[in-house]
Write a protein that binds this DNA or RNA. Structure first.
Length: 568
RNA sequence: CGGGAUGUGGCGCAGCUUGGCCUAGCGCGCUUGCCUUGGGAGCAAGAGGACGGGGGUUCAAAUCCCCCCAUCCCGACCA
């Protein structure tokens, strides 16, 4: 390919509306252009990267026995109503009507469609297990699309669904996908880690996320440097620490805390540690208000709380509601004598002795509050958000924390959808049984962005070899120098003829421009043909990642390049 | 959804406070020519926008007012 004929619109300046590095660089380097918020054109370079990632994904899915198909993007509402998600999915579902007024949606995921397909076509245990997948656009009307390709409203995703006879079969399918995903991201050249995760809206039980490490990531994970444990903080369990006090419970009493509302204000006013305070947070659920209690220095994990309460909705109550329920200004709510609300306490809270809480009275707190004596929780559970430094739930050593980008997730769905949609098969005894399902997604475009997020420097993108749009760019220093152009052409033809993905930068630009663009675009190898090369017969090969340069005779260039890109 | 900000040629911006020297300016990019060629050169001549959209105020609006749209950021309450 000749650069003079390629659509690679590089920009010298950072686009004003791009915040994160991957977004900025992908726009600047001519890979993507925005069509609307969260909706992008993938230009030729980006499409090449996408195809490479897709190829890796296809190979690994197929290796595990996956069969590729294509399902509709436009999906009828009836299936979603049948699964119950038409109402549950919420505003993220792009909804539309046809000319007859019938409801449809743009598929954010395909459990309904595939379950419908399989229930109609698969009837016998002999046809199971089945692994079906597709790679196509997905649509989610995100409340806030941002970060370029990292959180778009239209994006490319691979989704695979497994159908098994039983949970043992599902376990095998799940492990296959775990292996496949690990191989996919390894082959993409990314630094990542599978972590235990929460199953969120899709439902189901066991699930892992594949997290690419990157500072801009929206996911916070903790992992143990000593054992294999790794989890999304939303999921990570947090065993209570050991009781450190042998204090005797003292009598409950009130203390005036005028104007002190926050944990910091109250504890500093009383001259004590936040660990002695019980923080009371009111949540509103479809089953009424709930007071959630954690130690003053902890945070509530709303995902855990929602799960433990077994509610669909769980939001922090607004301030007027807090005032109404506690009968005091916000900041003075406490579990003691709090009428009419359910109380959910974190495990750690139950170990506290002579704690401080709000007294449900303006400017007043209680001292010497003792859980069990002064109030009785309706629910005691692990409710707190894990932090780096907390003990590993497996080996008890301190956990490390990091940010990352979720590029894949695998779920065990069980019979959630097969039951809702009646996807059953006949077993050996002729008995109908629900298929046991799993679903497994990889964000293709997000993986591309994550790769940039993880692999760049101040000059531009540094593509991992496996997913680079091209392997090599050949840069003649002067397009007016006939000898250089001849030699550059020769090198280009040699490489192209040998199947190397190579671009000849034949644009009539000054060398600086071509070098800058080469760095920005992130070609793994740059071959420079200047006067030195013409005279010595050796061209300069420079590695984008390291800046390391080698002089290679033209006769050897194909072998040399092929060795680097690993195709020999 | 709430809050904030922005919207001026392909990109980045200035002009708006104190309407009229703006039938709009600068840098980059683009076109043509000359010149230059190892890290985004230089000179010259050009093309390209009626200022997000609509409505108002005014003798006069990119500048003031109203509505709408779009984009970006922050937040969604840790009491």
């Amino acid at each position: 390919m000749r650069a003079s004929q390629l659509l690679i619109p590089t920009l010298r300046e950072v686009p004003a509306d791009a915040e994160v590095v991957s977004h900025q660089l992908l726009v600047r380097a001519g890979f993507i252009r925005k069509a609307a918020a969260g909706v992008y054109n993938l230009l030729p370079l980006a499409f090449r990267v996408v195809k490479k990632i897709e190829t890796i994904v296809r190979e690994e899915m197929d290796r595990q026995g996956g069969q590729e198909l294509v399902m509709p993007i436009i999906q009828p509402a009836e299936l979603w109503q049948e699964s119950g998600r038409w109402d549950v999915y919420g505003p993220e579902l792009f909804r539309l009507k046809d000319r007859h007024g019938r409801d449809f949606c743009l598929g954010p995921t395909h459990e309904e469609i595939i379950t419908d397909l399989v229930r109609n076509e698969v009837k016998s245990y002999r046809q199971l297990p089945l692994l079906l997948y597709q790679i196509q656009n997905k649509y989610r009307d995100e409340r806030r699309p941002r970060f370029g390709l990292l959180r778009g409203r239209e994006f490319i995703m691979k989704d695979l669904y497994s159908f098994d006879r039983d949970h043992e079969g599902l376990e095998i399918s799940y492990q296959k996908m775990f292996t496949a995903y690990t191989r996919v991201f390894e082959r993409c050249g990314l630094r990542f880690r599978p972590v235990e995760a929460d199953s969120g809206a899709i439902g189901g039980r066991d699930t892992h996320e594949f997290i690419v490490f990157a500072a801009a990531g929206e996911s916070t994970v903790v992992f143990c440097p000593h054992c294999d444990y790794a989890a999304n903080v939303e999921r990570a369990s947090s065993p209570p620490g050991q009781v450190v006090t042998n204090e005797e419970p003292a009598p409950l009493r009130e203390v005036a805390t005028p104007g002190r509302r926050t944990v910091a204000e109250v504890t500093s006013f009383l001259g004590m540690d936040a660990k002695r305070l019980i923080k009371t947070l009111l949540f509103e659920t479809e089953q009424g208000f709930v007071a959630a209690l954690v130690r003053g220095d902890r945070d509530i994990n709303e995902v855990k709380l929602q799960k433990e309460l077994a509610v669909l909705r769980c939001e922090l109550a607004d301030l007027p509601a807090v005032a109404r329920i506690s009968g005091a200004a916000p900041g003075y709510a406490g579990p003691v004598g709090l009428p009419g609300v359910k109380i959910a306490a974190d495990l750690e809270v139950m170990q506290m002795v002579n704690a401080v809480t709000g007294a449900n009275k303006d400017d007043t707190h209680f001292l010497n509050v003792n859980p069990g004596r002064d109030f009785k929780p309706d629910l005691v559970a692990d409710l707190r958000l894990v932090r780096a430094g907390d003990p590993c739930p497996v080996c008890a050593r301190p956990l490390s924390g990091t940010q990352g980008i979720e590029v894949g997730q695998i779920f065990k769905l069980g019979d959630k959808y097969s039951k809702a949609l009646g996807a059953t098969f006949l077993d050996e005894n002729g008995q109908p049984r629900p298929m046991i399902m799993g679903c497994y997604g990889i964000g293709i475009t997000r993986t591309m962005a994550a790769a940039v997020e993880q692999n760049h420097d101040e000059n531009g993108i540094v593509w991992p070899l496996a997913i680079a749009p091209f392997h090599v760019v050949v840069v003649p220093v002067s397009d007016r120098d006939e000898k250089q152009m001849t030699m550059a052409n020769q090198v280009y033809e040699l490489l192209a003829g040998a199947g190397v993905e190579v671009v000849l930068d034949d644009r009539p630009e000054r060398p600086g421009v071509k070098f800058k663009d080469a760095d920005l675009i992130g070609y793994p190898l740059r071959i420079t043909v200047g006067n030195k090369a013409v005279q010595s017969g050796e061209v300069e090969v420079r590695r984008r990642a390291t800046g390391e340069t080698t002089f290679v005779p033209v006769d050897n260039i194909v072998a040399y390049v092929k060795k680097i890109i690993g195709e020999v």
